[in-house]
Computed example of a mutant assay.
Amino acid sequence: MTAEMVAPEWTHTQISPEQYDSWSEGQCAGIEIVDGMVVVSPSASKRHNRLARILANALDAAAGADWNADTDFDVRLQDVPLTNRRPDVTVYRADTIDLTPTRPEHVLLAVEVVAPGSETTDRVVKVDQYAKAGIPFHWRIEQAAAGVPIIYTYVLDPAGNAYRDGEVFTGTMKATAPFSVTVDLGAL
């Protein structure tokens, strides 16, 4: 005896911005929309979530009054076809805290913590999408199986809508861009 699986409608039709905006926060949790299609994200590990939270807290404290840093919310990269990404950490303009959706022009920095199952997306696809959307800074965190994480930083070259390599940090991160922040990566 076999059970026939019926895929939900959203797995094979493009989602419009209006449809997505009508969904509850619970329906949007754990997914991203890429070219109008729902992409389900695997659950993050406790280490992944801790990395994101500690970094978001450090960035929020260092950002000053004009910027906020937070975790796990949509950034609408484009409307047609709909593409929403959920960076692990986002630094955004404080005066846009109540605006939905968050747009690339509200974002200063998007951070991705590379996780098993999302390596290519985090290392290649999202980097390209964030650059094309005009987000000025991008950081990628690689988690070592044992040891201290490595943070790769990127700065947007607006002439080519691509990132150029910035600094690489392990141990203690002392970044100067997009603003001065120090983070003990060993505590992550």
Rank of each mutant, 00 (worst) to 15 (best):
A3C: 00
A3R: 08
A7C: 01
P8N: 04
P8W: 00
P8I: 00
S16G: 06
S16I: 02
P17S: 09
P17A: 03
Y20L: 04
Y20E: 05
S22A: 15
S22P: 01
E25M: 11
E25P: 04
G26C: 06
E32Y: 12
V34S: 11
D35F: 09
D35V: 05
D35W: 04
G36Y: 08
V39Q: 14
V40A: 13
V40G: 05
A44W: 01
S45R: 11
R47Y: 09
R47T: 10
H48M: 02
H48C: 08
H48A: 08
N49F: 00
N49A: 13
L51I: 15
A52N: 07
R53L: 13
L55Q: 09
A56I: 00
A56P: 06
N57M: 06
A62H: 02
A62W: 01
A63I: 00
A63D: 01
G64Q: 08
A65H: 02
A65L: 06
A69W: 03
D70K: 09
F73C: 08
F73L: 14
V75M: 08
V75K: 06
R76M: 15
L77G: 12
Q78C: 13
D79F: 11
P81Q: 13
P81E: 06
L82W: 12
T83E: 13
N84T: 10
N84G: 05
N84D: 14
R86V: 13
R86Y: 00
V89C: 09
T90Y: 02
T90Q: 10
V91I: 04
Y92I: 00
Y92W: 04
Y92A: 08
A94Y: 06
A94P: 07
I97F: 07
I97C: 04
D98T: 10
D98W: 01
